[in-house]
Computed example of a mutant assay.
Amino acid sequence: MCNLFANTMPQEAMRRLFKVDPSNDRLGNAEPLPAIFPKGGAPAVILDDDGTRTLQNTHWGFVLPQVSKKTGKPIQPKAVNNARDDKLRTSRFWKPSFEARRCLIPATSFCEAKGRNPATYVWFGLEGDEDRPPFAFAGIWQRFQGDYGGEYRELVTSSIVTTTPNDLVRDTHPDRMPVILRPEDYDGWLVDSAEAAFKLIVPFPASAMTVHQQGEGLKLDRAWSDSSAA
Rank of each mutant, 00 (worst) to 15 (best):
K73P: 07
A44P: 00
Q76D: 10
A42I: 00
N82K: 08
G40I: 00
W60M: 05
R53G: 04
W60C: 04
L88V: 11
I46A: 01
G72H: 10
K78L: 10
K39P: 00
I75K: 07
I46Y: 02
G72S: 13
D48E: 14
G41M: 07
K87V: 02
L64G: 00
A44T: 06
R89A: 10
A42K: 07
R53P: 07
V63D: 01
K69E: 14
L47A: 03
P65F: 09
D50E: 10
H59I: 04
N57G: 14
N81V: 04
T54Q: 15
Q66G: 09
A79G: 09
P74S: 10
K73N: 12
K39H: 06
T52I: 14
D50G: 01
G61C: 03
D49H: 13
D86Y: 10
A44R: 05
P74I: 11
R84C: 04
R84L: 03
P77T: 08
R89N: 12
L64V: 12
L47H: 05
L55Q: 06
N81C: 06
G40L: 01
K87T: 14
L47Y: 05
P43N: 12
G51L: 12
D49A: 15
L55T: 02
P65S: 06
N57V: 10
K70H: 11
L55K: 08
S68I: 13
A83C: 08
G41K: 09
Q56D: 05
R84F: 04
D86W: 09
P43H: 03
R53H: 05
F62D: 07
Q56S: 14
K39W: 07
Q76W: 03
K73I: 08
K73V: 10
K73Y: 09
Q56W: 06
R84N: 01
I75L: 05
L55N: 00
F62M: 02
T52Y: 07
D49L: 09
R84Y: 10
S68K: 11
A42H: 09
K69C: 08
A44Q: 01
S68A: 13
F62H: 02
A42R: 00
